[in-house]
Computed example of a mutant assay.
Amino acid sequence: MEAALITAAVAALGCFMNHQADRRSRREHQDENARLRLDAAMRAGALFSGTDQRPANPAAVASGLLALTRLDHADLAVALLVDLWSDTPDANRVSHETAVLVIDAALRSSSPNARLVAAELLCRNAQRLSSCHSLHWPSVIDGYWSAKFGPKTKMLLTDALLRMTVARPVTEGALRSLAVRLYGIWEGDRELQMRGCIGRLISSALPALRRLGYTDFMQGNRTVMITDLEAAAATGTHNPDGFLDRMVDERCKQLGHWAAACHRTAPEDTKLVEAV
């Protein structure tokens, strides 16, 4: 009996030591991964530094920003983007396409702060973008929506979409793109107040959409039927928050006025970039 107990104790001790060794090995592996990721992030950050005589190459800056997003440092990348992407010529060191890719990565991240900063930055620069260029809008919300966005992030992204769209004269392609993107927000959000606001916005553009005579609208990989848009428009309600309700009123007026000038164009007159 005593020998059996000793054998069992030795076996238990061996299992415990093996477990501890496995835990130590996993911890060391995690620490090494963290060190490598930090080292890679520092090397990516070095791409932003230029010299007194010459600023950093725009291609190097773009590579550094995108590298940071791949290293799960989207919050840092979008924070750097604040200074690198603006309407000041001397400060504009990244292209719109690069900036939108960084914003897209931040919106996909698990950091609420990164998503909020990305949304605010997109809204701030929205009027410089084109709603007919797919690379000028984050693919994560191109006809879709994420329920993980906070209330302010949702408001900023919606406002960015509207600012970008009405900043340029209306075209058939721009109106179709807007319809699909607004419907994606309405369909993907489960907050009744948000859906009510988006329903009102869709309702403002619906008369112009009906005049186009189409039964379906496509943007990217998404197709929406006119009946879907009519159902969404029917849910439009006023927001109990007076400030937000006045803001939606103003956006509805702008959108309705912008959309009213749209007319159906012949296929040969419509640029392909506006149809995709």
Rank of each mutant, 00 (worst) to 15 (best):
E2R: 01
E2A: 04
A3R: 13
A3I: 10
A8P: 00
A9Y: 02
D22R: 13
R23W: 07
R27K: 10
H29L: 15
H29C: 06
H29F: 12
N33D: 10
L36K: 12
L36F: 10
R37V: 15
R37H: 09
D39E: 14
F48K: 02
A56M: 12
A56G: 04
A59D: 02
V61F: 05
A62N: 02
S63F: 13
G64I: 13
D72K: 15
D75H: 15
L84G: 03
L84I: 12
A91F: 12
V94S: 02
L101R: 03
V102E: 00
A106K: 04
S110T: 11
S111F: 08
A114D: 05
C123I: 08
R124V: 14
N125E: 08
P138K: 11
P138H: 12
D142V: 13
W145F: 07
A147R: 08
F149G: 01
K152S: 09
L162P: 05
A167N: 02
P169H: 08
G173T: 09
V180Y: 02
R181K: 14
L182C: 03
R195P: 01
C197R: 10
I198M: 05
G199R: 00
S204H: 01
S204D: 01
P207V: 11
R210F: 03
D216V: 13
D216L: 14
F217M: 03
N221T: 15
V224P: 00
T227G: 13
T227Y: 09
A233E: 03
A234I: 07
G236D: 02
G236N: 03
G236L: 06
F243A: 15
V248I: 15
D249C: 10
D249L: 11
G256W: 10
G256I: 11
H257M: 09
W258E: 00
A260L: 04
R264M: 06
K271V: 06
V273T: 15
E274K: 10
